[in-house]
Design a protein around this nucleic acid. Structure first.
Lengths: 101, 101
DNA sequence: ACCCTTGTTCGACAACTGTCGAACAAGCTC
DNA sequence: GAGCTTGTTCGACAGTTGTCGAACAAGGGT
């Protein structure tokens, strides 16, 4: 049971949307979109590491990210290309900056 | 006590995504996108009317739909233009048909 | 070997969510 | 007005979710 990283065609849209529909996770995705591959530890958004680990798992299982272990760290990256292919425009739409009002 | 339909700028993205991240609601949105303004009653997707009413409320409060009363019915419609303006590409991305595999 | 760093997993808990039937409200039609 | 149609609201209930601290696991450095 290692690759908890599903094929995108096997993930329902609602699962992807659910994964994106959380503030912490959206911040993580945004950070990954802007900063590229990052260590889990650098993705700190004010929750405990247990909670962060949970959110990263949700993202991974929704097909949004890939994780690889390097030393004691784990590097996480967004599956941008695949996502853009299966959900054209989705990430752009979600991550786009919006006028505050 | 009119149904409240928030200004889109007042709705967090996560709220919109949460509203879309449900199978029944997604079917409703899809039906509205394809069929235009529809009566609540015509939006039957195998849940009780209480549940359907709940989902329509979630959509309305997320700024996705508008509702107006006509006789004993209520006509619901998608706030397409506003949504496309605030979240360019989002609805297109979510509603687009996807290859099954 | 020891410890420190980095993460994951394990309960536990409160909050939220989807669902239903029943009761209620408001408007048509007879 | 009586009754029907169309929806909403009100508990209630089970399931899911976000959160945490604590325990655990694995690697690296000294």
């Amino acid at each position: 049971m290692e690759p908890q990283e599903p094929d995108l065609t096997a993930v329902p849209v609602t699962t992807v949307l659910t994964a994106l529909a959380d503030d912490v996770r959206l911040q993580i995705v945004r950070a990954l979109a802007e900063g590229g591959e990052s260590a889990c530890g650098s993705l700190d958004f004010g929750v405990s590491k247990a909670t962060r680990s949970h959110h990263l798992k949700v993202l991974r299982e929704a097909g949004l990210t890939r994780t690889r272990a390097v030393g004691t760290s784990r590097l996480v990256r967004l599956r941008r290309d695949e996502l853009d292919k299966r959900y054209p425009g989705l990430l752009d739409a979600v991550l786009a900056p919006r006028p505050p009002a």
